[in-house]
């Protein structure tokens, strides 16, 4: 941390010097052109305000104020190039320009603080949503697993075969669901921790898609996944583990919530600035009230009318949006030609 603040300090100092030098230069030029120096005070004031705007903290603005007053006295007031300290207006001018600088610094500090608070609040919300969602998302599969196992074990002598098989299948399905929930939780924890900085590296988009699709086919062999990629290789800077999780969530959601989805089309395209990942299935699509709440991580609320017994998207889509946003990208959800469509875009830089 100390290293960073030293670096910052050097940067701010340099900026102060540069701005004030520029102000002085402007004054010289104007002086040369118009042979007057009445504007000098204003120009320096402007320099002070700029300094306060672009540096951190209050110190540099005050420093600029000092420099400005000195330069004003020395270079732009008779007698030129001599420090004349008998005139009253210099302390006053110093105080006034310092006030201006302080005002500007305070505004800047507040703005910075607000944006920091906002991003902290967003991260906190994600964490809170996660915890809430964990409570429901984990309790339900655990209930099914425990209950189905108990039902089987307590009655294994009297139950018909098909009942026993269904109970065991339910255990298997719920365990798979739980595994996915935990993956999401771990991902979110990573995103939430520290400064939320991503481990971004350039990756070949088609390779990442390829791996995700291969894994997905193993779990859902009955769903046809087709991919369409552009002729040339597309490299995108991304945190590959997070983006893999995003794609996995999108595919799983299609498989589970799409009602008889048998085909998913993945299309990769690039327009020089952004890379577009589009996923379209042939299911029943989204209903309009579903779309309103689709990114809410709060998974069960009476407003959300999910028609089948399955629990909702859970934190899946909310997580997808957070991850994509962190990459500086955007995600959008709607209905395509054949079914539901989800598109996310990542910047190429």
């Amino acid at each position: 941390m100390k290293r960073a603040s030293l670096k910052q300090a050097v940067k701010d100092l340099g900026l102060t010097a540069a701005i004030m030098t520029a102000a002085a230069a402007v004054c010289f030029v104007l002086n040369y052109v118009t042979r007057e120096d009445t504007f000098a005070a204003s120009v320096f004031l402007l320099g002070v305000v700029f300094t306060a705007r672009f540096t951190n903290g209050y110190m540099y603005g005050i420093l600029a104020s000092l420099i400005g007053t000195f330069l004003l006295n020395w270079a732009f007031t008779e007698p030129y190039y001599i420090l004349n300290d008998s005139i009253l207006k210099y302390p006053v001018s110093f105080v006034i320009s310092s006030c201006a600088s302080l005002m500007m610094s305070m505004i800047m500090t507040r703005m910075r603080r607000e944006s920091e608070l906002k991003s902290i609040a967003e991260r906190e919300k994600l964490r809170a949503d996660l915890l809430c969602s964990v409570s429901h998302d984990v309790r339900t599969p655990v209930t099914t697993i425990a209950g189905s196992a108990a039902a089987y074990l307590d009655n294994r002598d009297v139950l018909p075969e098909e009942t026993k098989t269904k109970l065991i299948e339910d255990i298997r399905d719920e365990a798979q669901w739980l595994a996915r929930v935990f993956e999401n939780i771990l991902t979110v924890t990573r995103v939430c921790s520290g400064t939320g900085e991503l481990n971004k590296r350039p990756e070949a988009a088609e390779e990442v898609i390829g791996e995700v699709v291969m894994n997905f086919r193993q779990i859902h062999p009955d769903i046809r996944v087709s991919t369409e990629v552009p002729g040339e290789l597309v490299m995108v800077p991304m945190d590959v583990q997070l983006i893999k999780q995003v794609m996995k969530n999108i595919l799983e959601n299609a498989a589970i919530h799409g009602h008889n989805v048998t085909e998913i089309k993945i299309k990769l395209s690039c327009d020089g600035e952004n890379v577009r990942f589009s996923f379209e299935d042939n299911g029943c699509g989204f209903s309009s009230d579903h779309l309103e709440h689709i990114f809410d991580a709060m998974i069960f609320s009476p407003e959300m009318k999910v028609t089948d017994g399955r629990r909702c998207m859970g934190i899946g889509l909310s997580l997808c949006r957070s991850v994509v946003k962190l990459h500086g990208g955007e995600i959008s959800v709607g209905n395509g030609e054949t079914g539901a469509r989800l598109v996310f875009v990542l910047p190429m830089k």
Partner: peptide, 11 residues
């Protein structure tokens, strides 16, 4: 949840 319904019914 149909799976919960199922095992409750069985029990």
């Amino acid at each position: 949840e149909s799976s919960i319904q199922y095992f409750m019914q069985t029990i």
